[in-house]
Amino acid sequence: MQEAISITQISKSYERKIALSSLSFTVNKGELVALIGPSGAGKTTLLNLLAAILPPSQGHILIDRQPLSELMDHKKRAKKIGIIRQQFDLVGELPVIHNVLAGRLSEWGIFKSILSMLVPQDKEYAVQALIRVGLTDKLYEKTSSLSGGEQQRVALARLLVQSPEIVLADEPVASLDPARAEDVLELLVKIALEENQTLIASLHSVEYARKYFDRLIALKDGEIFFDLPASSVTDDHINSLYRLKELS
């Protein structure tokens, strides 16, 4: 198995508060990893470190055996790592097609990206991506007029066009109702499998994490609480993960 991500002794602290303390793990190519754990455990911080949005206080991150800190050209980084968050990531004022084609911006120069606003460039990419997420007829609709679930599908379509090797998803379904959430999550996992992407998603729902992912990494108070294949995670594990301090 080829290593996609390797983290050694990563720590991150804000001011005095420690968000993550010496985390180490590796993720293989094509693995589907769910990050679970109570609020404030450090899930978002970990994803932000992996996305190079935040620098780690200590330790290093290797992406494809290359230090992440050397991957500073964000156009090249966009080919390696893609991010999907809650639905606020789209530009609501633009038609769906431009939000999807924004996934091509790392490939385009300035002239082509400005021209595309008038005459959409590489349109087939957007059409194909929207077919795969099941939004064929919404190409020219204003993005903000779409429902929350549809908007998250548009974000997935953008990710398809961007086509990174690693997908980081930070609570991708947190603001959706259960039916919509399961829909989007299923699609996210399906695409990752089809595209042979490595997927790391933070989730509130342990149920979804066990259903759709291969491996569960549980964080608690900035440390790894357990790191197990989804099949061997028991209810006892989960209960002790979410148990409040006072009760333990």
């Binding site: 996305a51 990531d89 789209l90 431009h98 990206s113 606003m117």
Partner: peptide, 21 residues
């Protein structure tokens, strides 16, 4: 709001592309 801009930059947009999109 900053989120859409950050998302564009994460998708590989330069400053001018982020301005435009």
């Amino acid at each position: 709001p900053r989120e859409p801009i950050k998302a564009l930059e994460a998708a590989g947009a330069s400053k001018i592309q982020a301005l435009w999109y």
